[in-house]
């Protein structure tokens, strides 16, 4: 019983991180109709920014979180102008596939640049907060887990307000849902694209800083998160915001339960099997719509 509760807590916390991480993929897919394979690299860069400010310069962890978010948002904009904008609207290419490859290439370039700048060695980073909170029996949560859940909830709440209330947020949803109509409302699509990429960077950077104390900061720190993010996105249905949140927690829970009861080596194989099953049974995900219905 206590093991189960512990696993569920851990699963929910990871689910929260996956939710903000994958939300970046979801927003970009909704708006630009391509998978942004640099989403993991945004988190990696965010981790390095936080490491430089905290471990290196001695700033408090919260400053590291903010620096990571801002740096990754900048990297998101850079990624847009290098690897997406030159492809938008070109008639001689398949945009979705070409942008997928070009963002993957940019992600590899970011990792390589980080190796050149800081070397390949892992960097340790302190958690946002130390210590543990005892709940009952042997069940306890670290304050870091509480902080992670809190930050993730603030991010999701803020995102919901932004998307549903603000002019910029509504225009992101409008471009995602009805491109021509959004243009007829006077929305400049070009600006919405880079704002969306900045937002994806921001979310990826925050996820990266939250994950950093658990996995170290390293040039390949974005690889695992993007795999998890893709799993969540496929289970959710690409582009579905609500689905992304549910699927992130489902994936987090499955991962934690498998790691606890079967062994942590099994969590990735189980998740990948899940992708295969979803691809066969419900390729549009839990909350997506089949293509013909989308029209």
């Amino acid at each position: 019983m206590e093991t189960l509760v512990q696993a569920i807590i851990s699963g929910l916390v990871f689910g929260a991180i996956y939710a903000i991480m994958t939300m970046g993929l979801t927003l970009v897919y909704g708006c630009l109709r391509t998978l942004n394979m640099a989403q993991g690299a945004f988190g990696m860069v965010g981790g390095y920014a936080a490491w430089m400010l905290t471990t290196q310069a001695g700033a408090p962890p919260i400053a590291g979180l903010i620096a990571g978010a801002v740096a990754a948002a900048g990297i998101g904009i850079l990624t847009h102008f290098i690897s997406i904008k030159p492809l938008v609207g070109r008639k001689d290419i398949d945009f979705e596939m070409t942008a997928y490859i070009s963002t993957l290439v940019v992600a590899i370039m970011f990792s390589a640049s980080i190796i050149l700048l800081f070397g390949a060695r892992n960097k340790a980073i302190d958690p946002l907060v130390e210590g543990r909170l005892k709940i009952f029996g042997t069940v306890s949560v670290s304050w870091q887990q509480v902080a992670v859940a809190g930050v993730a909830l603030i991010c999701l709440g803020g995102l919901s307000l932004l998307l549903n209330r603000s002019r910029q947020g509504l225009s992101i949803m409008a471009v995602a849902q009805q491109f021509d109509a959004a243009r007829l409302m006077g929305v400049p699509a070009g600006r919405v694209y880079w704002v969306t990429m900045a937002l994806a960077g921001l979310l990826g950077g925050i996820a990266g800083v939250l994950l950093a104390p658990l996995y170290f900061v390293s040039p390949s720190a974005g690889d695992l998160p993007i795999l998890k993010g893709l799993t969540v996105a496929i289970v959710a249905g690409l582009g579905s915001i609500r689905g992304t949140i549910y699927a992130a927690f489902v994936i987090g829970l499955i991962e934690a339960l498998v790691a606890t009861y079967v062994g942590s080596l099994w969590s990735l194989p189980v998740l990948f099997s899940l992708i295969v099953v979803f691809m066969i049974v419900r390729p549009y995900g839990l909350f997506g719509k089949p293509e013909e219905e989308r029209l």
């Binding site: 949803m173 409008a174 009805q178 007829l184």
Partner: peptide, 24 residues
């Protein structure tokens, strides 16, 4: 231009659709 077939933002609420009309 009010387009043929309405081209609404189907997942937004009625009010959000109207606010989008005042985007500028």
């Amino acid at each position: 231009h009010i387009p043929q077939g309405d081209l609404l933002f189907v997942d937004l609420t009625v009010e959000q659709n109207l606010f989008m009309g005042a985007y500028l």
